[in-house]
């Protein structure tokens, strides 16, 4: 357990998720990276685009495919002080999903808002 490095101004870092939860390890990698990054007290946000909105669905039970539930772990984000959580409006509506179907409260963004969010970052990490 090392000391958290102190930096002058926190960097704005956006984690962009674009993949469905279990077809690859990217969704889990993104979550692990996000939780790890939270130790460095930067200005973190996370965005779920396209297929990645499926990561947010309730009632995931991937035990029989030998995976850990993303839906179980995602609700820890606010506990890790990650509260800027966004999902793409069109991605939800295309898939017939509403925010009531999701495991944690997200802010729903249109295309312009997503472009603005991305443009305001110091770095973007895509998964």
């Amino acid at each position: 357990m090392k000391e958290t490095p102190t930096t002058a101004t926190p960097k704005k870092i956006l984690f962009v998720n674009t993949k469905a939860p279990y077809g690859s390890s990217l969704a889990r990698d993104a979550l692990d990276a996000l939780l790890a990054a939270s130790a460095y007290e930067q200005d973190l946000s996370v965005l779920f685009l396209g297929e990645a909105v499926f990561q947010l669905l309730r009632n995931q039970n991937p035990k029989d495919i030998g995976m850990k539930s993303l839906a179980a772990t995602l609700p820890v984000l606010p506990m890790y002080d990650i509260t800027q959580i966004y999902a793409q409006e069109s991605a939800l509506s295309t898939r017939g999903l509403s925010i009531d179907d999701l495991v944690l409260p997200v802010k729903v963004l249109g295309a312009d808002e997503i472009a603005a969010l991305m443009g305001s970052q110091g770095a973007i990490l895509s998964f």
């Binding site: 357990m1 939780l35 130790a39 850990k68 539930s69 179980a72 772990t73 820890v76 506990m79 890790y80």
Partner: peptide, 14 residues
């Protein structure tokens, strides 16, 4: 049991 993840130190303390 609830979150399927072992918490980091900061979270454990909390």
């Amino acid at each position: 049991q609830e979150y399927s993840v072992s918490p980091a130190m900061r979270i454990l303390v909390k």
